[in-house]
Nucleic acid binder design. Structure first.
Lengths: 167, 167
DNA sequence: TTAAACTTTCAAAAATTACTGAAAGTTTAA
DNA sequence: TTAAACTTTCAGTAATTTTTGAAAGTTTAA
């Protein structure tokens, strides 16, 4: 496997994984491209490499910046804007954990708390609803708390912790 | 919030969360419905409750069974088949972790190993590709190893471990 | 100011994914 | 066997999501 084959394989695999986890393909592929690029890339560079339109590129770069894993960089004396990705894998994981928690997990936890907190009228179905949503609430809440730990610790906490668990 | 409001809120929230994480809405909603149902439900029951077609119900029940989180149950003397969900939240988490690892993470890890293992020709871009895919490989591999630990431990290991980490 | 160089927005089109419903398939009781 | 009761499959349709491309917007240098 030569450089180009490896690059294409990485980009398309990352895109496919993104899709499976609810992240759109172009966004994941732009991230993959920037992740392995030693130099900042312009919008043109990205459009050309991935064969996607200007609009698509612009929108997905915005999203990646909203997620806090891609940044703008302007080269002195140049009008054009360049983009670089967060390069530290730990920081990437922190950032993704932080955003998914904030956008997706926290709102669900809120609903689970509300739902599991309804008045128990003693009927079988109400009891089951309360019991089952409560157990989900407890799992989601501890998982989320762990995610926040990750987010707020120093950058290599994840690896250290995973290592501890694995041993 | 009364029982019906709570039930509907839980089902639609669970469906929306599924969508965000790459799981189709009907599948997530069927799971939610069975999760809080004290009795096994027939296909008719599910169709009626969620307003979805027979075909859709059948296909998504099959997927839930493939994931190992929903089971068939036949009542003695009845022709109809009934469905129940795994009720233990720990077992649910184990099963989901196991399946996502097997279907999605393991194949990606394989690609990351291949890609990061290409010959280093000394060029800047090749060095960056190798460095960055290797760091992703290491993260994914320890995360996956942890997932397997979860899968292979006794059922309440997750909570215990999360608790340990949180303190 | 102006205009060139660039980015963003968004309505329309394309692509993908999910859903339906009827036909085919299966199982079971008699 | 047969036929009723049920489930699965799948081609066609619908809904959703993604992508395009051109117009509008912004920034900067002169």
């Amino acid at each position: 496997m030569n450089y180009n084959e490896a690059k294409d394989k990485f980009i398309s695999t990352w895109g496919a994984l993104g899709t499976l986890w609810g992240i759109n393909k172009a966004m994941a592929q732009i991230h993959a491209l920037l992740w392995i690029s030693p130099e900042p890339l312009s919008m043109e560079d990205i459009m050309e490499e991935l064969h996607i339109s200007r609009g698509n590129t612009s929108m997905n770069l915005r999203q990646l910046m909203d997620w806090g894993i891609v940044f703008k960089e302007s080269k002195p004396g140049e009008r054009k804007e360049y983009f670089i990705s967060e390069k530290d894998v730990q920081e990437l994981a922190r950032q993704v954990a932080k955003e998914r928690s904030r956008r997706e997990i926290k709102p669900v936890i809120k609903v689970l708390r509300e739902v599991s907190g309804i008045e128990n009228d003693g009927s079988k179905k109400t009891e089951e609803l309360i019991k089952q949503t409560k157990s989900l609430y407890e799992l989601a809440d501890s998982a989320d708390t762990m995610m926040n730990k990750i987010v707020n610790q120093e950058s290599n906490w994840i690896t250290k912790t995973l290592m501890k668990l694995i041993k």
